[in-house]
C-alpha cells in the first residue's frame, strides 16, 4: 500500500505492507534510527514520536495509519545546530545513563510540557508514566524536564515542530538520512 508521511519536515512516499509498524517504517525504510524499540509489550515508551502533534508509541501504530500525517522524531528537534531546550536540559542535568530510553523520554517530555508548561514534580512523573528507564535514572530526568520548562516559551511543544516542506520520495531523500 502506498503511503505519504511527513517525517521531521520532509515528505516521504513509500509502498509498505499493511502490517508494518510505524517504528519499523521510520527505522528501516527512512533510516530514522534515532527512534528505538525497547520492548515487545508497548510498555517502555522508547519508541515515542509525535504523530499529528501528539505523542504516540510508534510500535503501537501501523505505518498505514500515519498515511497523510506528520511525524516528528527526536532527530528533527535540533535547529541550526542548536539542541532543543529539552535535549539541552537532559544534557545539562545528566538525565541519562545508558541513553536507550532517552529519545522516548525527550519526545514525551515535550508533549507533557505542551499540555502543562510548568509541571510540578508529581505532574512530570505522571506525564512520563508511559516511559521506562531501566537504569532507574528518574530523579535527573524529572529535574531535566522541570529545568527545560523554565527555558521554553509557554506552550512550545509538538505544535511548534510542525514544519512541512516539499514532498520527496524515500529514494530522493536518502542523501539526507
Amino acid at each position: 500500500m502506498r503511503i505519504t508521511v511527513t517525517v521531521d519536515g520532509t515528505g516521504y512516499t513509500d509502498d509498505v505492507e499493511p502490517r508494518t509498524l510505524l517504528v519499523h517504517h521510520l527505522r528501516e525504510k527512512l533510516g530514522k534510527t534515532g527512534t528505538v524499540v525497547g520492548c515487545d509489550t508497548s510498555n517502555c515508551g522508547a519508541c515515542t514520536v509525535h504523530l499529528n502533534g501528539q505523542s504516540v508509541k510508534s510500535c503501537s501504530v501501523l505505518a498505514v495509519q500515519a498515511d497523510g500525517g506528520e511525524v516528528n522524531t527526536v532527530e528533527g528537534l535540533a535547529r541550526d545546530g542548536q539542541l532543543h531546550p529539552v535535549q539541552q536540559a537532559f544534557r545539562d542535568n545528566h538525565a541519562l545513563q545508558c541513553g536507550f530510553c532517552t529519545p522516548g523520554m525527550i519526545m514525551q517530555s515535550i508533549d507533557l510540557l505542551a499540555d502543562n508548561p510548568n509541571p510540578d514534580e508529581e505532574a512530570v512523573r505522571e506525564g512520563l508514566e508511559g516511559n521506562l528507564c531501566r537504569c532507574t535514572g528518574y530523579q535527573n530526568i524529572v529535574r531535566a524536564v522541570r529545568d527545560a520548562a523554565g527555558h521554553m516559551r509557554p506552550g512550545a511543544g509538538p505544535a511548534a515542530e510542525q514544519v512541512a516542506d516539499g514532498e520527496r520520495t524515500t529514494t530522493g531523500a536518502r542523501g539526507d538520512v
Binding site: S42, G45, S55, V56, S60, E129, G130
Partner: peptide, 9 residues
C-alpha cells in the same frame, strides 16, 4: 487509563 501516549490513540 494506561499512560499519556496510549490515551492519545
Amino acid at each position: 487509563v494506561a499512560d499519556p501516549q496510549v490515551r492519545h490513540r
